[in-house]
């Protein structure tokens, strides 16, 4: 994965110099370990800023909404699926984009790493599938595959689905059971489910980082900011919190690609993907739909087919 960067820089430089794009959206090194920042590169000399490693978990499709420029964007599997969703939802035009596809082998779970060590992590480097973590008085080498973000470890679309350029050969897709934990919750009785989510959301502070990191959340006025009528209370009361997470998940139904940006952005490490993934699973099982795989197909929630399931209607 580390070797990609030369190719990324080379392609980006070419695109800007040939005036094919006005800017490149990619990652630059963050000021803290494991926190690469998105960056816009507009001139060939800035191309050197771009980096690529296993800390590029932010979904760059988020930065495309309603842009007018011609854009070169670096896209992992999940980014590319969200780009497709953006195109389907008329938030950007395919002609505006040059997609630099990056086959991905997963991103590191920074929440997990931070909680694994007492002291502050000062440096994280990777080499040949191993991660070296350095702090003031410790140093440890871990296997990257053991510390992947959970959504990456169950990812089945690691390769970009649309791209104009590709920085390396495609990687092998995983064959995993995506919904084991969702099924576990489905099997619980109602009371237990309620408590499970109470527990899950108990630390939420309503900072809306998950919403802001999400490439799907681009409504001009989000439902939580509406005040007339006010559907969702603004407090950190457990019911308000639950209403927020629940409705947000509904807004993402049939659109979520499980890129994990929400979970990654969460400052208290809530796994809110337990909501979105249930809907993702339902979409897959009832409509055979996975978001962002094709530019020609309309999503299930805006098409009608006579064979759509309707058992829930009396």
């Amino acid at each position: 994965m580390l070797g990609y960067i030369d190719k990324i820089r080379q392609i980006s430089k070419g695109l800007i110099e040939d005036k094919k794009v006005d800017m490149i959206i990619g990652f630059k090194k963050g000021t803290m370990p494991m926190m690469n920042e998105p960056c816009l590169v507009k001139s060939p000399k800035d191309v050197e800023k771009l980096v690529w490693d296993s800390n590029c978990g932010i979904n760059l499709a988020n930065y495309l909404t309603d842009r007018k420029e011609r854009i070169g964007i670096i896209a992992k599997g999940c980014d590319s699926r969200n780009i497709v969703t953006h195109i389907i939802e008329n938030k950007i035009k395919r002609e505006q984009l040059v997609i630099i596809g990056v086959p991905c082998t997963g991103m590191i779970d920074k929440h997990r790493l931070t909680s694994m060590f007492e002291g502050e992590i000062e440096q994280v480097t990777e080499q040949n599938g191993n991660i070296t973590i350095k702090g003031e008085d410790f140093e440890e080498i871990l296997k990257k595959n053991d510390v992947l973000q959970q959504n990456c470890s169950v990812c089945i679309h690691r390769n970009p689905v649309v791209y104009d350029e590709l920085v390396s050969d495609l990687v092998e897709e995983q064959d995993v059971d995506r919904y084991e934990d969702v099924r576990k919750i489905e099997a619980m009785p109602s009371e237990k489910k309620w408590n499970y989510f109470d527990d899950l959301l108990s630390t939420c502070i309503r900072c809306y980082a998950c919403r802001n990191a999400c490439p799907l959340c681009y409504c001009p006025t989000c439902f939580v900011d509406e005040s007339r009528p006010q559907w969702v209370g603004k407090s950190d009361d457990s019911i308000d919190i639950r209403t927020f997470h629940f409705l947000r998940a509904y807004h993402c139904a049939g659109r979520c690609t499980d890129c994990g940006a929400c979970e990654r952005a969460c400052p208290v490490g809530i796994n809110m993907r337990m909501f979105t993934r249930k809907l993702e699973k339902d979409c897959f099982e009832q409509y055979g739909w996975e978001a962002g795989l094709s530019l020609d197909e309309r999503p299930p929630l805006d098409t009608y087919k006579p064979e759509d399931p309707d058992d829930f209607i009396k």
């Binding site: 109602s190 009371e191 237990k192 489910k193 309620w194 499970y196 989510f197 629940f246 909501f275």
Partner: peptide
């Protein structure tokens, strides 16, 4: 809704 603990029904 059932998924988060509202009783079916």
């Amino acid at each position: 809704m059932e998924h988060m603990g509202i009783e079916p029904g």
